[in-house]
Design a protein around this nucleic acid. Sequence first.
DNA 1: AAGTAGTATGTTATAAAGTAACAGAAAGTT
DNA 2: AACTTTCTGTTACTTTATAACATACTACTT
Lengths: 162, 162
Amino acid sequence: MSQPFSCSHDQHDHCVDAALTAAERLCREQRLRLTPLRRKILTLIWQSHRPVGAYDLLEILQKEGRAAPPTVYRTLDFLLESGLVHRLATRNAYFGCTRPGQDHAGHVLICESCHVLAEIDSADVVRQIDASADAFGFEVRRQTVEVSGLCPRCRQEADHAC
Amino acid sequence: MSQPFSCSHDQHDHCVDAALTAAERLCREQRLRLTPLRRKILTLIWQSHRPVGAYDLLEILQKEGRAAPPTVYRTLDFLLESGLVHRLATRNAYFGCTRPGQDHAGHVLICESCHVLAEIDSADVVRQIDASADAFGFEVRRQTVEVSGLCPRCRQEADHAC
DNA sequence: AAGTAGTATGTTATAAAGTAACAGAAAGTT
DNA sequence: AACTTTCTGTTACTTTATAACATACTACTT
Ligand SMILES: [Zn+2]
Ligand SMILES: [Zn+2]
Ligand SMILES: [Zn+2]
Ligand SMILES: [Zn+2]
């Protein structure tokens, strides 16, 4: 599972495989059931380093038989609760977690141009936010941090286009 | 416009008045039109220090005559673009900006218990996020930071309840 | 003042995202 | 096998948001 910004997309199968292996391990350890449907959805989500909409997933499922929204959303609920995927609030979309099982906030960088997404895990950011909240007497339970902008690749292309 | 966490809600008219005055000034300076409808919606949003849903606003408008979603959403678009309100992505809701006209990221703390919301403006957090993104070669355009947890008031009550 | 361009609002219909409720199937337990 | 729990299918619906077009209002030009 290489870093999204540096993943050479012709070798991206590695990422999918790694994600599935990690998922299997996590489910074994936590006695969760990684059923065919759940594995399927997780695989679909990992097909790219981009967030995927619930109805995109549904559409794909429907090409291989009947399927309805609850099927997708229930599966997403499982994946979210088990920490295998995160939800991107600013886009109503879902993406695979790069560190399932590890305690982390799920902060992301997302490219406005190519939509590639990277989960960043900066302890400094987490601490700064905790400190800021603390100054207000606020008890932090969850930090949602979604940073949009330009990924390195698109940035370069923008430069070339001058 | 006192800090949300410390606003004594029986004197909250001050906040509404301050917000409207600030809005008038901003619209005058930027040659934007603060029409009756826009003023109305902005006032409704400022009735509390809590985020308000578009359909909540619609419902209120409908008590005083006909109204349809586009009316609300267009008005919200204006208020968002002029920087008079922000959107809370994690809750599909809208809240009044405490610093319209000033350049800032619109980071918020939101209480999971009473839903009171405070806009924080920590230059440290902004810088940390910029620095983290920079380490990836990522160019930041917008930071969405929404921190949920317990506000000081609800925290106290939780303590008393022991 | 009348004409006109631009902006704002009304109206109808529809899209997109998410959930409730119940039925049936599959997997685990005794 | 009988029972319990968990997972999936299905239908119907709620919530959030937008497209498209009609009308009204404003501000400026002549
Ligand atoms: Zn990859
Ligand atoms: Zn993660
Ligand atoms: Zn107040
Ligand atoms: Zn603000």
